[in-house]
């Protein structure tokens, strides 16, 4: 009987030991990243809600292509820069940037180029111990055919979500926050650079519409304001938010959406219209500020 009890206790100890051992390693890796928002007014629940509602850069990337803009990988963060990122803080931000760059490349079906960016994503995600969520082998296999761009986008987005879900479960939302913020600023940077070279009304509207997610992004970052690594980033986003305060979004009188059934699906048509007002002077300031923030991150 004693043997059975010993065996049972040993098994439990082993299982417990394994799981707590993993957590210890993760803590070590993220030591340089802020770990709490105790002194902030933003609660953990707020942070998780904001992370779940974080907009995907896929939409803005897709609109860039639809606007007729030519593919230009000169705008993207150079893959060679990956070796410059030594701190977890910069690794997380630039992982987000490279994932958005990969999305941009895949939307233009440049699957071969996306492999180079995949290597950068792999390096940074492995360094941050979240590489297990990206199916690198499948992505590499799919990249041999440009018709697989949609599948690559799906697999990488799914991996990204799994990673965020895992980080949130492990109370590492600060890492998710940095990755998502990096991805968002890169999407804004790419669209502002295109508008800088050629004015496109639909893209300018999308740039103005970023006022909505920016409110939440700023709230999210301010949760970590008391951490030294975050201070400068929060200040930069505070400046960007101040500029965006000058952007106005007005709505026509709200009317009930109409419903119709199309191919067995209920389709609701929004009868309210939104209008973005952004002056050229303000647009130029936003373009400049976005460029400053993004270039500071990729340095």
């Amino acid at each position: 009987m004693k043997k059975i009890l010993y065996c049972f206790i040993l098994t439990l100890t082993f299982v417990w030991g394994c799981s707590s051992g993993n957590q210890k390693n993760e803590s070590d890796i993220f030591d340089s990243i802020a770990n709490s928002s105790k002194s902030s007014n933003v609660t953990k629940e707020d942070v998780e809600k904001i992370l779940k509602s974080f907009p995907s850069p896929l939409e803005i990337n897709s609109l860039i292509k639809e606007s007729g803009s030519q593919y230009n990988d000169e705008m993207l963060n150079k893959v060679e820069n990956v070796s410059n990122y030594n701190r977890s803080f910069n690794k997380a931000l630039n992982l987000g940037i490279y994932v958005t760059d990969m999305g941009y490349i895949n939307i233009y079906e440049k699957t071969y180029t996306s492999l180079k960016y995949l290597d950068a994503v792999k390096i940074l995600s492995n360094d941050l111990k979240v590489g297990q969520f990206f199916d690198f082998n499948s992505i590499k296999r799919l990249a041999s055919n440009r018709k697989n761009a949609d599948s690559i986008l799906y697999i990488s987005t799914r991996g990204f979500e799994k990673m965020n879900s895992y980080l949130s479960d492990k109370n590492r939302s600060n890492v998710s926050s940095l990755i998502l913020v990096g991805g968002w600023i890169e999407g804004l940077y790419i669209s502002t650079q295109i508008v800088k070279s050629k004015y496109k009304k639909e893209l300018v509207d999308k740039i103005g519409e970023q006022k909505i997610p920016l409110e939440n992004i700023y709230k999210l970052l301010s949760a970590y304001n008391n951490e030294p690594n975050f201070k400068e980033l929060v200040k930069d986003f505070s400046d960007l938010k101040s500029l965006y305060d000058g952007v106005t979004i007005s709505y026509s009188q709200s009317k009930e959406p109409q419903m119709k059934e199309v191919d067995g699906r209920p389709v609701f048509v929004d009868n309210t219209k939104s209008t973005i007002n952004i002056s050229n002077d303000l647009l130029n300031k936003i373009i400049e500020k976005t460029s400053n923030i993004r270039n500071k991150i990729i340095k």
């Binding site: 519409e209 909505i212 979004i249 709505y251 026509s252 009930e256 959406p257 419903m259 199309v262 067995g264 699906r265 209920p266 389709v267 609701f268 048509v269 929004d270 009868n271 309210t272 219209k273 939104s274 973005i276």
Partner: peptide, 23 residues
């Protein structure tokens, strides 16, 4: 503004499509 369950007809859909005109 939209639902995948129309209570009046008790009709249920697994998907819901929304044509957005206001950001």
């Amino acid at each position: 503004i939209a639902t995948n369950y129309i209570a009046s007809s008790k009709k249920y859909y697994e998907t819901l499509v929304y044509e957005c005109n206001s950001t």
